[in-house]
Amino acid sequence: MSEKTVAVSGIAEPVATRAAVSAKTWRALRRLRTRSAALARRLARTVRRDDGMSTAEYAVGTVAAVGFGAVLYKVVSSDAVFDGLSAIITKALNATF
């Protein structure tokens, strides 16, 4: 029986040649290869298919950014922070060199 070897992912595996197997076995091997290839294509499509994911991620990110902005605005516009920032700016402008 003559066999060829093919490297798949760095591992050499024997590959049956048509002369080495019966017609029935050859047909079964072809069906298996066709099905496995179809399954691999279907799996690749399923893994790639994330049509709505980017939109949902943008929406969540936008809501989070708006919430963070609102909290930051409330903190910065409070009297204590305003007085503190005014004092820092006044001190920096009146500094002598």
Rank of each mutant, 00 (worst) to 15 (best):
S36P: 00
F97P: 06
L72F: 14
T34H: 01
V63H: 13
D83I: 00
G10R: 05
R42K: 14
T34W: 03
A56R: 15
V76H: 05
S2E: 14
T55A: 15
R41Y: 03
F82T: 10
A38V: 03
S54A: 10
V63T: 11
R35W: 08
V8R: 11
A40L: 07
A38H: 05
A87W: 07
R30A: 02
L43R: 15
T17N: 04
F97C: 01
A28R: 13
G67Y: 06
V76R: 08
A38P: 04
G52M: 00
A16M: 08
R33V: 00
S86V: 03
D50F: 03
A56K: 15
A7M: 14
G61C: 06
S36C: 02
K74R: 09
V8W: 09
L93K: 15
S9H: 06
V8S: 11
A20P: 02
A56W: 06
T5G: 01
D79W: 09
D79M: 09
G67H: 03
R42E: 13
A95W: 12
E13D: 03
T46N: 10
V21W: 07
G10Y: 08
R31P: 01
W26P: 03
K91E: 06
M1C: 08
I88F: 10
A92M: 01
G69R: 07
L39Q: 07
T17F: 00
R45G: 03
K74Y: 00
E57L: 15
I11V: 14
A12F: 06
R30L: 12
A70P: 00
A64C: 14
V47Q: 07
R18Q: 14
A12D: 15
